[in-house]
Design a protein around this nucleic acid. Sequence first.
DNA 1: TAAATAAATGCAATCGTTTGCGTTATCCAA
DNA 2: TTGGATAACGCAAACGATTGCATTTATTTA
Lengths: 343, 343
Amino acid sequence: MNENRHLTMKDIARELGVSVATVSRALSDSPSISRERRLAIQQYAREHNYFPNIIAEQLRHSRRNPSHAIGVIVPELVHYYFSSILDGIEGEASARGYQIMVAKSNESYEREVQICEAMLKNKVCGIIVSQAKDTEQYDHFKHLEAAGVPLVFFDRICPALNASRVVVDDYMGTLNAVSYLISTGCKRVAFYGAPMNMMIAKNRYNGYRDALYKNGLEVDESLVRICDNRADAERITPAMMRMENRPDAFFAVNDETAIGILTVVKRLGFSIPDDVSICGFTNGFRATVCDPMLTTVEQRGTQVGKEAADILIGLVEGSLPADHAEKRIVKTRLVIRGTTRHL
Amino acid sequence: MNENRHLTMKDIARELGVSVATVSRALSDSPSISRERRLAIQQYAREHNYFPNIIAEQLRHSRRNPSHAIGVIVPELVHYYFSSILDGIEGEASARGYQIMVAKSNESYEREVQICEAMLKNKVCGIIVSQAKDTEQYDHFKHLEAAGVPLVFFDRICPALNASRVVVDDYMGTLNAVSYLISTGCKRVAFYGAPMNMMIAKNRYNGYRDALYKNGLEVDESLVRICDNRADAERITPAMMRMENRPDAFFAVNDETAIGILTVVKRLGFSIPDDVSICGFTNGFRATVCDPMLTTVEQRGTQVGKEAADILIGLVEGSLPADHAEKRIVKTRLVIRGTTRHL
DNA sequence: TAAATAAATGCAATCGTTTGCGTTATCCAA
DNA sequence: TTGGATAACGCAAACGATTGCATTTATTTA
């Protein structure tokens, strides 16, 4: 019937013997079109389910109105935290009339650059991004800014760019969690952190260190390890537990790592939390599945996503000045469960 | 400098004293432009980082070429299976030069309709969708098809529409899993399923029933429950275990439910898998976190997503006829872990 | 009855590209 | 000198919608 062509105003105009301009005005309820003609046109459009071509609309308005598509770049998709982020962004975006366009970088710098290009071509109105781990050049981000596409970073921040960002309070989150471990009587708290080239890793380490200091404890380097996944945790933890002066608590950079520790500690016959306390960071699916359930720092990805979308839309719509770098910090919350002793 | 305006061909043309057509041809390496002019134009464009306006390109080509944006509608985002789906779609799409536009329906019919409208307006070239639970009208999908936007369903299928689809082999997956439970010596296998208005629920139930029959067992209705989440599982399982003729195995419609069962069964002092076997469906994050680790049917969301994207792109690019309804079934795989006895 | 006013509609430019076709310039052969 | 190729470029229409301005028609007023 419509042979894969969309119905256009021109078609309606031809069919009803009026001009395209009249159709346009009628459909936008302009009072300058007579009532009967207006209704006739609207009815015809409805019956043949006419749909405005947004491409043409956008082209026409490209000077004034930006598009309503927000680009989102995440390192991974199958990942609790990033899913939550997406969820938060989607919620805020859809509530304010925006669509989201999602791509994953796979932790690859090259892919990240490609994605930026593709998104620029697709005329997203702005981009929310958590960098890939191996990104150390920032030209692609600078190009975007030069092209007038606002950028909001989350989680993994680009220090070289004074861009808007929203991060969780890694420092305080860790400080509070470790302080809690100490307050329940733990004296030797181990720390499994991510590689220190990421801000987020540094901040968590600093939180750990300061929690010890504030409680009159020293940092024992033999209790600090670079380890941010389960496999590594299962590999290095046995040796840790066989030390003569073994830890009586673990703080892990994420839940996944914490689960690795928990698995090993249980297998070695220690009791949790009596012999060993464990605290994670995320509060994802895993936290309530393990036995005992995991005490962890809630990272509130949904809130982070929501704030990021709010900033971006503010930048796009002008309620935030374009050259302003808005920086927000989302507070974390310690969720106490079974892997830690009680006060 | 560029005062928020993008550099256009017209700008280049003016600056270099040629026509817009010449610029266009030069940038697309047309041989009809003299070598020096071509290089000069290309260099100017590069130096001032010119970027073609995809909106205008699309408008020009809208008759022949569809856009390269694929719409994806999922009921939830913070969900292992749907994350995997997204991951599969994104992988296939980006490899073939497509972007994905994601929205979540929140299991709401109303929202689903809104999203379809928005995506139609945004001129996606096609849509991949898993319906919301409460969707029982299909006009919005029919409108899309009428507008020439191909549709691919996954997981939750719309029976009223003869559309392309990709589903996992729920029937065989369940049949194999339950058969395995029986082969390890279980005689009374309970079944926790989703509400039967979803195809996926029916197929799994049929798989369960036929596995019993094939092994000479009868369906005992007291062992069959509608239950597809953890909270419900924790609520109804204690009574189940206190029956005089209690089950010696559970098959659950998803891992989450299986974890609920596992938690209760352990708390009641039964030993897993000696007293009770448990089998889930998904093989997500949870499966390797619980103790013992969960035997489960791997749902292969990434593969499902990949196939769905493959079909959709085929439909869009014409390698699949537009009126053809491609139906694919992704095979599942039983992953045997600690919650079931060995042979 | 003519002029002024108001109401309803059409014309045409515009957004940034692409592309069929026509135009100009250049050169060579007849 | 003229005709015909060929190369290099420009013109202008098109994609589908919006909108300032001009135009037409109907209505009112003097």
